[in-house]
Design a protein around this nucleic acid. Structure first.
Lengths: 141, 141
DNA sequence: TTTGACTGGTTGCAAAAAACAACTGGACAA
DNA sequence: TTGTCCAGTTGTTTTTTGCAACCAGTCAAA
């Protein structure tokens, strides 16, 4: 089992989401309540549809999200974060926090991030619970 | 000023270190006390020398590290993290923490990470201070 | 029941990035 | 002065990305 560069924890994380797009997809689901392919395709960063397909498949293989059929629209797939994906929230928040300090970010986003940072574990737990509810509601079918 | 995909905080972070190599270089300096080109070239992941050159240049442009001449060896460059780079420590620790929970990581690394996570702000401050000292010692020349 | 818009993708091609290996010229230590 | 180490550079191949056009199934309204 050596299709990986090393077993360093940082590298192990990067082998999953060390690229320009993966964390943006996770952001869409985690913070922007996006659930469908076309919703993610419409995000500001303009990901190409073939790349989106590829990353969603890889994330499913890694067990970070699951794909289920929409109950009301046969053609639509619902993408939901698993516990493994939800556990990336602290990583996302620290990254966003760093950006508010060192990069160009809108005031609105900055306020939103600082709320998450200062809101502490309580607010994060609340958000995580909501994502876990979403997961439960699709997986029990 | 629109050579970026968006001003979302997550994307702003990814434009700096959203690739397979950048955070490994920062890890080398931050946690493995590497300071020289050849030391980083020798890391387990086997980065190619042209890629390493490229990333070090970009990180310098972003103000995340600085390159200085070694006092004792004219040909050697010393790479040190700036405050902006040192501030990435919480991101690195959260990523490593996630890996210990969800990826294959050695027991030794796992213990090291958990020490950082549980050691809290105190241990992180101690490590940050050491990196800031290293920065001071090269920048006052 | 036809139409037209929307669904999650797929395909083929061009451009960019990464990987690989060989090489360079200056510096140092013996 | 010889061999080793230094930070890279250069040229080529392979892989990944970006782009645009396209597709068949589905749905809601006319």
């Amino acid at each position: 089992m050596k299709n990986c560069k090393s077993y360093c924890p940082i590298n192990q994380a990067l082998e999953v989401f060390g690229d320009k797009w993966t964390l943006l997809i996770i952001r869409d689901i985690m913070f922007d309540e996006k659930r469908y392919f076309r919703e993610m395709l419409g995000s500001d960063e303009k990901i190409a549809s073939n790349i989106l397909t590829d990353r969603l498949n890889k994330l499913e293989e890694f067990g970070i999200l699951i794909k289920t059929k929409d109950a009301h629209h046969k053609q639509k797939n619902v993408y939901s974060l698993t516990d493994k994906g939800i556990d990336l929230m602290p990583v996302m928040i620290q990254m966003a926090h760093w950006s508010t300090k060192h990069r160009e970010v809108s005031e609105k986003d900055k306020a939103h991030v600082m709320e998450l940072v200062n809101g502490g574990q309580k607010l994060q737990d609340k958000m995580s619970d909501a994502l876990r509810e979403a997961l439960k509601s699709v997986s029990k079918k």
